[in-house]
């Protein structure tokens, strides 16, 4: 069995119960980025590829408006189970819609009319892989297809097996800055491509003053 096939088999098992630290313990230095391509998949994520992350809404209490929150906290998942993104170069409109619907349904289940997708963040794989200041690795971007209709799924995961909470906090802010900060957010209501308007929180579709 080749090295890349072994890595794919490891990734397949890992995805059942993901923990980023186990991944980097087994394959340090983002070894899993070179896992073999799955049937019908797209193979390793290239540096120039653009990844899309859905930014969700909620309302923690009855403020009669959805929470439109975008902050470095979105990167927390990269230090835990992986941050789900989609590879735009390979993603069909149907796949984007299917992925958005999964996120949307979960939000509506939790937050009712306030729940939904209010924006997307798009960034290149290389923007999260390397610290632009030091050149050190920050994160790996893994080709992690989920199902035949979600083949362009990719996970952003922290690249090391150990991390101090202080360093993790700093890296979230650095990742946020390297993807462009607040300017990286595209609000769904302003997007002309992708037909994501149906996934806006209900209160934004029919705003009530």
């Amino acid at each position: 069995m080749s090295d890349s096939v072994e890595k794919r088999e490891f990734l397949n098992r890992w995805e059942l119960n993901p923990c980023v630290y186990e991944l980097s313990e087994a394959y340090p230095d983002c070894g899993c980025e070179s896992a073999s391509q799955v049937d019908g998949g797209f193979g390793p994520v290239l540096g120039h590829e653009v990844l899309r992350y859905f930014v969700t809404s909620r309302s923690d209490h009855d403020l009669k408006k959805p929470k439109k929150k975008f902050s470095p906290a979105i990167f927390k998942r990269a230090f835990q189970k992986g941050m789900s993104t989609y590879r735009l170069e390979h993603c069909t409109k149907n796949e984007i819609q299917a992925a958005a619907k999964i996120v949307f349904d979960n939000q509506v289940r939790n937050w009712g009319e306030f729940g939904g997708i209010y924006g997307v963040v798009e960034f290149s794989a290389e923007a999260v892989r390397i610290n632009e200041e030091s050149g050190a690795r920050i994160a790996c971007v893994l080709d992690t297809p989920i199902t035949p209709d979600r083949m362009s799924h990719a996970d952003v995961v922290y690249s090391s097996s150990k991390l101090d909470p202080k360093d993790e906090n700093s890296l979230k802010h650095i990742l946020f800055n390297q993807i462009g900060g607040m300017s990286s957010l595209k609000e769904v209501k302003n997007m002309t491509e992708g037909d994501l308007a149906e996934f806006l929180p209900a209160v934004l579709k029919n705003p009530v003053e």
Binding site: N131, E132, S134, P165, D167, N169, S170, I174, G180, M182
Partner: peptide
């Protein structure tokens, strides 16, 4: 629109971590 850092509160023993960054450079951790 760029982050200059922030506090993270875990709740354990009033412990918090703070980072101050400038772009990709960590100034305080």
């Amino acid at each position: 629109g760029f982050s200059i850092g922030g506090f993270e509160f875990s709740g354990t023993d009033h412990s918090a971590v703070i980072s101050v960054v400038s772009g990709s450079k960590v100034l305080v951790s």
